[in-house]
Design a protein around this nucleic acid. Sequence first.
DNA 1: ATCGCTTGTGAGAGCGCTCTCACAGATCCG
DNA 2: CGGATCTGTGAGAGCGCTCTCACAAGCGAT
Lengths: 314, 314
Amino acid sequence: MLRGDAKVSDHARDAVHAAAQAISYVPNLAARTLVTGRSDSIAFLVEETEERMFADPFFLGMLRSAQEAVAVAGLQLVFTVVNRAEDRQRFLAYAAGGHVDGVLLLSLHGRDRLPQRLEALGVPTVLSGRPLSGRRRLWYVDADNVAGGRLATNHLLESGRRHVATVTGPLDMCAGQDRLAGYRSAVEAAGRDLDESLVSIGDFTQAGGHAATLALLERRPDVDAIFAASDLAAFGVVRALRETGRRVGDDVTVIGFDDIPEAAEQSPALTTVRQPIPALGTTMTRLLLDRIEGRDDLPRRTVLPVQLVLRQTA
Amino acid sequence: MLRGDAKVSDHARDAVHAAAQAISYVPNLAARTLVTGRSDSIAFLVEETEERMFADPFFLGMLRSAQEAVAVAGLQLVFTVVNRAEDRQRFLAYAAGGHVDGVLLLSLHGRDRLPQRLEALGVPTVLSGRPLSGRRRLWYVDADNVAGGRLATNHLLESGRRHVATVTGPLDMCAGQDRLAGYRSAVEAAGRDLDESLVSIGDFTQAGGHAATLALLERRPDVDAIFAASDLAAFGVVRALRETGRRVGDDVTVIGFDDIPEAAEQSPALTTVRQPIPALGTTMTRLLLDRIEGRDDLPRRTVLPVQLVLRQTA
DNA sequence: ATCGCTTGTGAGAGCGCTCTCACAGATCCG
DNA sequence: CGGATCTGTGAGAGCGCTCTCACAAGCGAT
């Protein structure tokens, strides 16, 4: 009745409220959850190591926008990062047990079936990034990674570069695959040969970008442009380029992906493909909340546009 | 019974487990919470803007270590940042309603009575940093800010600097006050006059440090050493110093506070006072969990030591 | 064989809320 | 003025667990 039913007289309501105030009564939310089945919390689940979660501004940006969107809706965010199998198991029990109304799932690897299991247990789940399997039955929000890869590669190609290479992300993740696909499609569209020696596999991290670049330069010292699949990787690319005596933005031009805040602060400032990180987080959260509300006219797939941000490295 | 009571025969237990498996039964945690009064979640509450929460590596470091420590204990973390009054109210209802077993409270400002209210509602609370009021009745974990301020100031004084200034943190927070107190005590101990024109008020942010330094240099162009109350502020100090044509580490030496990862990556690398951020987060979490367990032999006050890290700016 | 003891099992209350349903009182119509 | 309709209120069931308590079964000691 404290919820403010319509069919209660005003003075009765006031009286009860006053009394509640007086004894500082607080409704027991667990009891409410038990009967309504709603906990008013949603989970933000990241399948990465703590190290990566906190080193990559992409995840932090997503956490920030999700936290804001959830707060606006009046719910709370349960923040979990899982890497060990036991953590996964515990989270599954927690979510299935009704402690959260839904989950935002980030950084799914390979053919991991966690989202399917959550859905099977009745927990609505929204993914960040297209899943490698089960795309037809899962809900996800993604940036247009293919277009982004194409945009970056095209720019390098059109600015007269002869040997445009790419340092990829991890290929067990769709973002890694798609950005590479964008690179390939741009190379083909320009009528050039797809040369696999120009593709070096990284993992979105700075260290990975650095190592991948060193390996790349080893076999192709003539590279004069690199599209890196993430900004962090691009920082590693730039470092490797410098260490091997190349001038960045001159001998070799570089484009990153993400447009994390640090990209603009580097010198030279990094040219990159901007993902709309705040919009991604907000859209995921809204979609999840709508699903929790029971709406069923919602698109399983939402793809947000990306945009090339020209700075000094290309 | 599924919890694994001691007094159940083995074969009965196995039979039940098998059956549970078969129908993929998952215990309803809300019902359990209702009767046990435990939700197996604790809150990580930051009283800052989202902007500051995500811009300051101190908070991120605390979030990370708290998340790790909570996961080890098998609980979940509810992550909330509140700035508007309505967010506070909603959080209070959420916590008091039993959705969390305790709260880790960061960045308390002024004489905010939020922790007292939480405790009054039966929600154990552990603070990061000594509260400005109610210190006798609250639990907190803090770094030794006074000693840190003294350490930094002493080093500047002993290296022969003549006009050692300080750019403070916000003075409505105990960390800001204590680091300034450390500065003052070092100046006095060295037998020098306390010159208030050498104290410039900042707010722990880079922009604040920048502005405070500009104001400081305006009235005291002869300053040749600055102790900044946070690393972020120190970055602002360095920028202001450069903009006014001074050589950092030479014309003016600088010491920061925190030792966030970025401090070592600057050039010149920042000399700073290291706070044991991971230990701070872990200690807070352990203390909170112990309180939740009902232990009552726990110290209300825990102060962890800090240490001067010499790099290039001083 | 009977008595007490331990050990294991099953029934039932109760956690604090929401929601339905029945009823009392007020309002309206013929 | 009586009956039908509407509004507001109170009682009571039920959500799914945990925990206590009574009892059944098994066992050694008398």
